[in-house]
Design a protein around this nucleic acid. Structure first.
Lengths: 98, 98
DNA sequence: CAGAATCCCATTGGATACTG
DNA sequence: CAGTATCCAATGGGATTCTG
């Protein structure tokens, strides 16, 4: 359910910065295409991780944020990041090649 | 780095059951092909999550287990599982259709 | 601005056969 | 038993174009 090239990145941004507009996410995530962004957002919405709010105005304004359940994921995400940071052999070990 | 259809499943089994042989993993994970199993195991090994031990004998015996760092992932994995279990609207909410 | 539709390629993943 | 090699289908993902 969290599979997909950009899902974790999206969640991370929504986690760190709160509610974001489509274009804000687009700017915040270099390399993502509109298609991918909307697609992964839809899937996350469908799975109840993110919520989507449309403001009926022009120009269109759509905001994405984490649902309660999505926010509840943060400790897990945090644990995962801490684990990743613990990865051995990253700097002190690599004196050979410069 | 954890992307891939079977990686989480593999890690979960190694986490729950300790060191496992190739064939044991194969039996434990219905639907996985040898190709996928070996491929994902190699990637996990390359990333330092699992360790691979070869016993030079016939018939060949190869055992896979989590590295120290891989084991350190368990709290994070656990947090993720707890989060998944918290998912709302799974049973009590769905009285309409059955 | 936000999103849909289309086309296209690269990667992933699966079935099968073969080897030491 | 453990792994490799090959072929094939499905999906993932990207560039572009179009719309309200």
């Amino acid at each position: 359910m969290l599979e997909g090239r950009w899902k974790m990145v999206i969640i991370f941004h929504l986690f760190a910065r709160g509610v974001l507009r489509f274009s804000e996410l687009e700017k915040s995530i270099p390399g993502v295409s509109q298609k991918m962004l909307i697609q992964q957002l839809r899937e996350l919405e469908r799975d109840g991780v993110v919520s989507r709010t449309v403001y009926p105005q022009v120009p269109p304004r759509v905001e994405y944020g984490l649902t309660d359940w999505g926010e509840a994921m943060c400790p897990a995400l945090d644990a995962l990041l801490e684990w990743a940071a613990m990865r051995p052999g990253r700097a002190a070990n690599d004196a050979k090649s410069g």
